[in-house]
Design a protein around this nucleic acid. Structure first.
Lengths: 217, 217
DNA sequence: ACTAATATTTAGACAAATCTAAATATTAGT
DNA sequence: ACTAATATTTAGATTTGTCTAAATATTAGT
């Protein structure tokens, strides 16, 4: 598989194109930052290889083989992220860009050894689950901070938004995955929240609260 | 720089194309396993980018900028080899292939952190020197086993031939870099050598002896 | 159900990196 | 110094992944 093919497969997966749900040419072109006509070409190519089902004007979805391929790439991406974060002291807003390159390295042994070196992590630095060698993973039970009942307690387990700006905001406020969090009160006017995190009181906007995943206690 | 460009630069460097010595189109095509006409095209392209000097029918040599580029790639290649060997238990005949891919990853921070993780190694698993961040390295004083006086003593410090067949032969006979070696006698008929390595007596062919680098004591 | 807006595909082009075959230059042997 | 052998370059083609512009299909609003 070429790098371009792998990137398309990943994009289709992230857009929800597992099973029979169809993803539009337009949606893929937006995700991939290419033109719709380029997507059409690639759709034909991937269909010929048995990685997607493609019906003219109806979009594409991944085949079983395509899903397996996507999970292999995602597994590599997330394991490399953990490696960069845990072993090389990259911050969680720096790992994605480099992992985008590393995920295309072709060596099964390499990624399995990295997995072992990291002691078989289940989640990446953003809280996303890492598929196992044979493509299994389970999404953690989690809710957005904004959707928690008031009052309630939980643990930070993930971020929805992985932009540098957001991740650095969390760093600055010493909010990290694994931290215990307590929702105290909601401000009716703007849906901002008064929370308690690591014993520290904070007032966070709704925009923050809709991008932080919490596992309820 | 594209991957193809990087590979050509590396090939020219390995063929000795530093400074004003010119490397022929043919030699490069052999090294790169491409046709001479492809090399001509690339030579023009690299010349335009200021990485090589190219004179029609006279071959190419690297410019200062080209040498710096080559050393950066070689640094990455060799550091990744050490990483695979030391941290992931790859054997020394497996590291090259994967490092060929990893050397093209674009992230200065990544390679500097790998360097640090490995505690700034000076040599790769085959005994070749690793250029520093600013392109400095020193070749170790070494001789081929076949060229040592008889008798003499030394330390294994490198291999000339890095083929799997040769490296596995060394593994099988428990010969590793760092081992003390003693040359006892040369067989006049076929230039094979009687040696003592790790207290173990061995009889090695001239073909072996011309591919093992020794640092004389 | 018809038309307008939107989405998708087709057709033809381009850049990168390669190739083959033909043309041209260099080199080596006498 | 001439010719034969070898090396190199040029010209034109191919593949991959992209693009633009035009053609066509689908969808949504009335």
């Amino acid at each position: 598989m070429t790098r371009a093919e792998e990137n398309y497969i990943k994009a289709i997966y992230h857009l929800g194109g597992k099973e029979s749900f169809s993803i539009s040419t337009n949606a893929i072109s937006k995700e991939m930052k290419t033109k719709p006509s380029s997507v059409t070409d690639m759709a034909k190519k991937l269909a010929e290889k048995g990685l997607v089902n493609y019906i003219k004007y109806k979009g594409v979805c991944l085949t079983k083989k395509g899903i397996k391929t996507a999970l292999t790439i995602i597994r590599k991406h997330r394991l490399w992220e953990v490696f960069l974060f845990k072993k090389l002291d990259f911050s969680w807003d720096e790992v994605h860009e480099v992992a985008e390159q590393l995920e295309h390295i072709k060596s099964e042994k390499l990624i399995d050894k990295i997995d072992e070196l990291l002691d078989f992590p289940k989640y990446d630095p953003h809280g996303d689950p890492i598929p196992s060698k044979n493509g299994h993973f389970q999404e953690r039970a989690k809710q957005l901070l904004s959707e928690l009942p008031i009052p309630s307690k939980g643990i930070c387990v993930g971020v929805k938004n992985t932009s540098s700006a957001f991740l650095r905001f969390l760093d600055k406020n010493q909010i990290a995955l694994g931290d215990a969090i307590e929702v105290l009160e909601k401000e009716a006017f703007d849906d901002s929240l008064y929370i308690n995190i690591n014993g520290q009181k904070l007032h966070v906007s709704n925009q923050i609260a809709t991008n932080l995943f919490i596992k309820k206690e």
